[in-house]
Design a protein around this nucleic acid. Structure first.
Lengths: 224, 224
DNA sequence: GTTTTCACCGACCGATCGGTCAAGCCCGGC
DNA sequence: GCCGGGCTTGACCGATCGGTCGGTGAAAAC
């Protein structure tokens, strides 16, 4: 049993929070995601929740705290969420699982994810999201470890590890800009497609298996 | 001679604009990029330019127009900029040139690029950036054409074209979130690295060209 | 020399911002 | 009955928002 059991209603890691607080966080996340932090007023949030503005200040001390609960809450357990979904097996499959798990997290906590990755991310005046950034670092370092592992195992070639991590995370982080939940595939399926493209490359031609390597999941790519 | 000759001072396509207007656009772009649209006040812009707020309204009718000049101006000629840098040759090399040219554009007009790709991008209330989006579509469709060309030529395998375009653009569009001009490589060099990873794949192993008899290729998913 | 043009400014406007506060409402325990 | 304490409210605050106003001063046009 992990801290993840406290996740609820699209709002991650908000243990022992009342329904009203969860409602506020959900609505605030949705508004922050669509209009940004500065573009969302406390009146907007109150209106969306059908409550008075004063009530927001009963449950939260100020606007920054609401954002912090949305954004930090959404990244707080991303690392744990993903880590717990990495199976034993070939390192390349761990990278694949990393991508799929991140996509699942994105799907489940989409508004909070968008709010935390877009709103005033580089405002030099504010340090509100510093903690969020350090958690992001832990998440990214975890991926780099997996990549290094795959290199050491000879499964992938000797690429630049930080740059490879950036490529993989770019494909996932940019997804919220074009992903439409009503169309296309699920985020997890998209992550699989991206893994296939990045791992196997776009180039045509047959790959000759190296002795120890395991091809990706059956049915995805013709092999042997 | 193309429209690109009017680019100047990091502000794209602002023909016959006075120095003061260019200064305002440059400062506004920098502020929009770091604090967002709503987070940047007209007073901020005036202060950064060392002029009065009234003067902004002498040169522009309102705040939206300043943003439009920054954002639309920065995407206005992106398509032409990139298109003019695609050489004749193998389609895969055109894709590579596409990525490098986009990276060069990013480097040259970085603040306007960031401002146009981050500020209130999905505010449902506003249609300010509609024109920008249609221009983006033209840009993305151009890339999809290059990918289809490479598939038809047999240079890359039969991947999902829109999804491949999204992967490539993700790697470029997310760059502004981690790129540090004082460290690391130039954007163009980064684009080359990403092209190599995506085109050749991360997987270790030898590529062997098939003879002319091409087996029904798998390794892809539903198309369109 | 007079008029027109134009870049530019300080003062000001109504609206809205984040945030405060005293007071009501509701409901279980006495 | 009635009391206490969370939940909830509307009225209100100073500050700041985007935007407007009348005007200045100097150069250009006549």
């Amino acid at each position: 049993m992990t801290e993840l059991s406290t996740m609820k209603d699209g709002v991650a890691n908000q243990a022992e929070a009342s329904d009203r607080v969860l409602q506020i966080l959900a609505e605030a996340g949705r508004l922050f995601a669509s209009k940004g932090f500065e573009g969302t007023s406390m009146r907007d949030i109150a209106l969306a929740c059908g409550i008075s503005k004063s009530l927001l200040y009963h449950h939260f001390s100020n606007k920054d705290e609401i954002y912090a609960r949305v954004a930090v809450g959404s990244t707080l357990e991303l690392y744990l969420f993903v880590r717990d979904r990495i199976p034993d097996g070939p390192p390349s499959q761990k990278i694949r699982a990393f991508m799929v798990a991140t996509a699942e997290y994105f799907r489940r906590y989409r508004w909070a994810w968008i709010a935390s990755t877009t709103a005033f991310w580089n405002d030099p005046d504010r340090q509100r999201h510093k903690e969020r950034l350090t958690r992001r670092d832990r998440f990214e370092n975890f991926l780099r470890g997996l990549i290094q592992e795959a290199i050491d195992a000879g499964e992938i070639r000797k690429v630049d590890v930080p740059m490879t991590g950036r490529l993989i995370l770019s494909s996932l982080n940019w997804m919220h800009r074009w992903y439409n939940p009503n169309k296309s595939a699920t985020p997890e399926q998209i992550a699989e497609i991206f893994f296939d493209m990045i791992f196997n490359g776009l180039r045509s031609g047959e790959l000759v298996e190296l002795p120890a390597t395991e091809p990706p999941k059956a049915g995805r790519r013709k092999s042997r």
